[in-house]
Nucleic acid binder design. Sequence first.
DNA 1: CTGAAAGCGCTTACAG
DNA 2: CTGAAAGCGCTTACAG
Lengths: 365, 365
Amino acid sequence: MDTVTARPAPAAGSPAPPDASQASSGASPAGVARRATIRDVADAATVSRSTASRALTGRGYVAPAVRDRVRRAATALGYVPDAGARNLRQQVSRSVGVLVSDLRNSFYAELAAGVGQQSRRRGYAMMLSDDNGSPERELEAAEAFVALRVAGVVLTPLSAAVSQYLARHGVAVVEVDRQFCPGTCDAVVVDNRGSAERLTQGLLRLGHRRLALVLDETDWTTGRERSAGFTAAVAAAEGREAAVVGAGWSVEEARAVARELLARPDRPTAVFAANNVLAEGIWRAAEERGLRIPEDLSLVSFDDAAWMSMVRPGVTAVAQDAVALGEAAVAALFDRVEQPGAPARTVTLSSRILERGSTAPPPPA
Amino acid sequence: MDTVTARPAPAAGSPAPPDASQASSGASPAGVARRATIRDVADAATVSRSTASRALTGRGYVAPAVRDRVRRAATALGYVPDAGARNLRQQVSRSVGVLVSDLRNSFYAELAAGVGQQSRRRGYAMMLSDDNGSPERELEAAEAFVALRVAGVVLTPLSAAVSQYLARHGVAVVEVDRQFCPGTCDAVVVDNRGSAERLTQGLLRLGHRRLALVLDETDWTTGRERSAGFTAAVAAAEGREAAVVGAGWSVEEARAVARELLARPDRPTAVFAANNVLAEGIWRAAEERGLRIPEDLSLVSFDDAAWMSMVRPGVTAVAQDAVALGEAAVAALFDRVEQPGAPARTVTLSSRILERGSTAPPPPA
DNA sequence: CTGAAAGCGCTTACAG
DNA sequence: CTGAAAGCGCTTACAG
């Protein structure tokens, strides 16, 4: 008689099997069928909840015949275990958090795609937020991740604050793209300095003497390293002038800055855009002024984008494999979860330079 | 004496405040500090867990002085309530699931960005998956959402199966972009038929007599409606020939199909690409063959992409506001959660045609 | 081989 | 005004 213990009866007497064919009438027929719990499964199979749990998870012994009976009952009821309840009991998590700057930027979207792919492969769900460059939103998202008890977080950080916050709360953290906590957090980055240096050397070899680097920030490792690579390459050559120009975060801001830069009498003959957004702004400004690429102006970009292979000539760029970056970040995250005490690691991915025709010797003076 | 009931002692005697300054030594110093629970907060404030809960949630009465004491204790301990435990108890969910086809496609990435933005505004976290067009992955993701007990799911469906599965499990569903369950599920779409018709009429007015529509599928409302709009416009004119050509899902497949189409002696003088991926393939094939746009070939696209405003001439396109689509889907989702019994609704968003110069009268025969 | 009991971290009527 | 108790849906030693 234990199986008929009193409990609130479902609206229609007994819970309707969710996959019964009459379910086609919409989201909620009169009364909203309660979701099946393990208790419903146990009752249907006339076993205890303990046995039902053992049968369904496969942990602990249960007689084969009983196991089959329980599984059939679960299927018939459309039973899906509550992940939250399971995690609460087991004190483990099966989800990872991802926090990027802007999902509308293809770089971040691809990064998220890579993280999602690898997470799913390992049986983890992905929680995703973007912060639009706002530190407040970034922290809010981090708090949400802590509340959700994610196993770990992959993020493109805006400062050291959020990584530290997460680490303090016992959440594994991997910084991607840029790095604020070297030595403390794991990170996955590309070879910013080396790639920027090689890209710049290409311009120098063509004979450019007035070069400009347009970038959006120098507080992050991305800006600093790309700038360092550019500067080092220029310094190694002789008699070259190099300007480093700060632009904003949007295409329009970059366009305005480039418009001014390209209007100078001693305008640079080669411009290095520190990312795809800046490259777009510069490209548009050049076109607006009627400057031909590459005859009047050489343009290169750190970070590739779809349009760079469609305009004529295409734009020579450092191609970062953002999907691979996301995948590597997940790998690092799980390594960290398995080895919480291991020293922090920085993984550097190589990147390729795609020569496309947007560079040429400088125009005659 | 009640507050000192025996319980497993944390590694270091008393739980270290997570925001103590010595926390800088990394993710896990010797012993891994246990995460603070409401019990820790209650003990620190020498009140019961009930009172601590009331003080922190703001539900139910608690003396002002006590409330402050509890809140200070929570802050000092870096307490973040376990969302899973809270949801389990309250039987509510504070997250929404999003399931799109391919995060690397800017349309879906922007859609997800819109969903994330609106969800966060309402205090909900976003769980995100992509299925890469695979029905198996789509179902797996849906199962994960059910297990996670999300409040609702926004998805770009591959068939009717997953929406029905979710609805059966009591999860609110909103279909976006295309619609498989009209009358049963809510949906947010654009005016595919009308926009396609207007876009086609533009081509007809220029005098084109041989037109082609290149599309990837006709099983979805997107393909069907765009095709219907195209066909209706052509039929309304007189003495026009229209081909409807099926291409694959990738740029390369579209390029191969377009290569063949444009090599025909009676090649179309105007091509309508049913989405941005197809448009890219056609554009590349045209360039490869040395066909000038718009002198030799007029090209229009349903669905805008960044490159379409950068190539010369730009590509005339129907601009869908993917972010707005995602935002509207979240609005519909919450309406559904609040009114489970309301009749299913389809929201149609208007879309604009951006004239950019890729169309002209057909070349002389 | 199986079931009763305890407990994960919360919230919420209810008693005092 | 506050605390003890019950319970959300699970899993897991442990007793039999």
